[in-house]
């Protein structure tokens, strides 16, 4: 038995070394995008830039740039041009947009299509829910933009607690474990591509609860208080299968636009976020709505 355990330890150590070397040489591991406490909000560290990597074989490698406000965008959201139509887009990871180059974000696509007649600011943060969106709206958007588009799904609407807004104090301190994690490309690779952290959490905390939660796509509860925070400048956008028609009919009083898949959004098996085609679809819906509104 002793020999076998030594064999396993040696094989496993060699495996970790090989994994570390390979992931570094081929740049397969995501560099963690650092978070920052900005006015007590848990956002991304301003003025950081890099390549965001996902996929076992670097299938996604996209350029990101964090602006002064802590969002992934080429622009800082300080000055608005009164000669342009100013719009804001709020949402979760789909709007945050790490899955394509920041140069191809929904905002940049709209601006390019309209020859800069429209100025777009994107307020996206992964994990965000309706409470976060309402707080973003109150803090940065209300009465500043001509239009605000909010990407929602069933799962965003049943939250009663913000995920990242007003949670700046929750940013993990640079503990030894975290430093090791940040420095070990192999561990980051396993964590991102095999969901090690999520799996361990599931198994050792509340496996059944989390499993049930994952399976719940259609919610029966809607946080109507958060929904009431949005004013008439706001428009909700959604994907057909991700927002129930009942909720649209009964709970949402503002306009709702369905994102029509004009371009086939190819998603990866390991990542269901939009690629460029998905973003084009979203941009087209927003542009079309604005043009239609101006004409009328």
């Amino acid at each position: 038995m002793k020999k076998f355990i030594i064999y396993i330890i040696l094989a496993f150590s060699l495996y970790i070394i090989l994994l570390e070397v390979t992931t570094r040489v081929f740049d397969l591991s995501e560099q963690t995008v650092p978070e920052a406490n900005l006015n007590n909000n848990m956002l991304l560290k301003p003025n950081t830039e890099g390549v965001w990597v996902k996929g076992g074989m670097r299938e996604i490698a996209s350029h990101y740039k964090i602006n002064n406000q802590g969002f992934n965008s080429l622009k800082d959201y300080t000055v608005l041009d009164s000669n342009k139509i100013n719009i804001a887009i709020i949402g979760d990871s789909f709007i945050e947009g790490f899955h394509t180059d920041v140069e191809n974000s929904i905002g940049r696509l709209i601006e390019a299509d309209t020859r800069d007649e429209i100025e777009v600011h994107e307020y996206g943060k992964s994990g965000g829910n309706i409470v976060d969106f309402s707080l973003i709206f109150k803090q940065w958007i209300k009465n500043r933009y001509d239009y605000t588009f909010i990407l929602i799904s069933d799962r965003d609407l049943d939250a009663y607690d913000a995920f990242f807004m007003e949670k700046g104090n929750k940013i993990p301190k640079n503990s030894i474990i975290r430093k090791i994690y940040n420095h070990l490309s192999s561990i980051r690779y396993i964590n991102i591509n095999h969901g090690l952290h999520i799996k361990l959490k599931e198994i050792f905390s509340c496996y059944r609860c989390s499993k049930n939660n994952q399976n719940t796509n259609i919610t029966q509860y809607v946080n109507s208080t958060a929904l009431q925070e949005f004013d008439k400048s706001c428009v909700f956008i959604y994907e057909k299968d991700k927002l129930s028609p009942d909720i649209i009919a009964t709970s949402i009083k503002l306009p709702c636009l369905e994102i029509i898949h004009q371009n086939k959004p190819h998603t990866y098996g390991f990542d269901s976020h939009w690629n460029l085609n998905g973003r084009k679809n979203c941009a087209w819906v927003i542009e079309h709505y604005i043009k239609h509104n101006i004409v009328h």
Partner: peptide, 23 residues
Amino acid sequence: RTKGIFIDAVLFLIITFSAQICS
């Protein structure tokens, strides 16, 4: 034995690169 350790480590490495979350 040494060759065995190396082969096992490499096989495990290939599995790690090929397997994906959710798949």
